[in-house]
Design a protein around this nucleic acid. Structure first.
Lengths: 208, 208
DNA sequence: GACACTAACGAACGATCGTACTATTTTGTG
DNA sequence: CACAAAATAGTACGATCGTTCGTTAGTGTC
């Protein structure tokens, strides 16, 4: 009973690494067994199906994300500082050496966005949760007086997501050495705007 | 001579649709042949390898992107208006019905970013070209006096990419009805900032 | 209408996929 | 130490993968 949990943990940790490199469909039981020197059937027995394996990989990814990004950021004081902490840890996560193929959620999001099933459902839920966490953190920054009360916190969360996605692409695909500087510049502009949101989304609908 | 080209075209167009749904590795010759009622070997003969097929799919995607996004936008006058046209067509492309699984380049970027080879090389080149096109268009907007001369056009292109990526995720994964409004809000804020990059309070409704 | 050439087919290959069974080993416990 | 339970291995299955080969059907040219 003890041993099982332990090797399951080992399998999942390696599966997570592997999934970031070859995707969630590319994640194969045979390959996994080879890498870990287990028999295919022995490994398979831990999960009753591949779908279940994928789900558990997503779950462990979530756990690690909370441990490495969310929880540590909660240690910093409420307000803008916490938003900064979240963002900083987030970018570190995106290019973490323990995730050699990049963020598993980004991979899962593009891979599963049109493949219904529990895996997709889980990714959707995770992403919604994360955006909500970001928005809530921004809201506390408003309460603390760091951000203007006119700030649309959901919009801010959405924009942060865009910054992180662009960062991942710039650093991982384009290997742009300025990737981090670009992300920081976008972030600072966004924060500056949040501090004094005179009219956040008005002034639109010009011309044409 | 003639016939071959024609069916190759048909195959590639369908392969592109399929690739957006199942990914570039998930794109399978058997499935493709089934869908098009061709024999596996007959279809395979058009491309000498799967890698070659993937490459040609990327090429046809590029051609379509230029036809549907870049070229039409060049018909609008230089300056901010052209930046707007590019952005607008870009978002339409991201959710085009002819690409049921989303933008093939976004899929390819996350799928191939750590798989060296000609397919990855092509995606990198395409993405660089596109960002450069965006930056150049922004530069003409500076020349036209629409944007402040202090604007970092590469940064602006990078930010536009983030907006588009976040839009794709919000609309395709989260099915957020506000996705387009979010993207527009981000875009307008970015443009407003570009108009007055040095003095953060001017933002007058001048232009041209 | 014969002829060269291209396009499409059918069958088969070795490999690998996910999964189902049955054994065998390993582990924790009384 | 014995023994039940849990963990792992072994083998086999039907499917499907990319690819090869030899053959048939179709096309365009003199």
């Amino acid at each position: 009973m003890r041993k099982g949990e332990q090797t399951r943990e080992t399998i999942l940790l390696h599966a997570l690494r592997l999934a970031t490199k070859v995707g969630f469909e590319g994640l194969t039981i045979g390959r996994l067994a080879d890498d870990l020197k287990l028999s295919k059937s022995g490994l398979f027995a831990h999960f009753k199906s591949k779908e279940n394996l994928q789900l558990q990989v997503l779950e462990i990814a979530s756990r690690r994300f909370v441990d490495e990004v969310v929880r540590p950021a909660l240690a910093t004081p409420r307000g803008e500082r916490r938003v900064r902490a979240l963002f900083d840890r987030w970018l570190q996560w995106e290019t973490s050496p323990s995730l050699p193929g990049g963020c598993p959620f980004v991979a899962a999001a593009t891979e599963l966005d049109d493949r219904p099933g529990p895996a997709r459902d889980y990714v959707v839920r995770s992403q919604r949760d994360w955006l909500e966490t970001l928005a809530n953190t921004a809201r506390t920054a408003v309460q603390e007086g760091d951000f203007d009360s006119a700030v649309d916190c959901e919009q801010l969360a959405h924009d942060l997501n865009g910054i992180a996605l662009a960062y991942g692409q710039a650093s991982r695909l384009l290997k742009d050495p300025k990737a981090r500087a670009r992300a920081d510049a976008s972030f600072e502009a966004l924060i500056r705007r949040a501090r004094s949101a005179s009219s956040p989304t008005s002034a639109g609908a010009r011309r044409r």
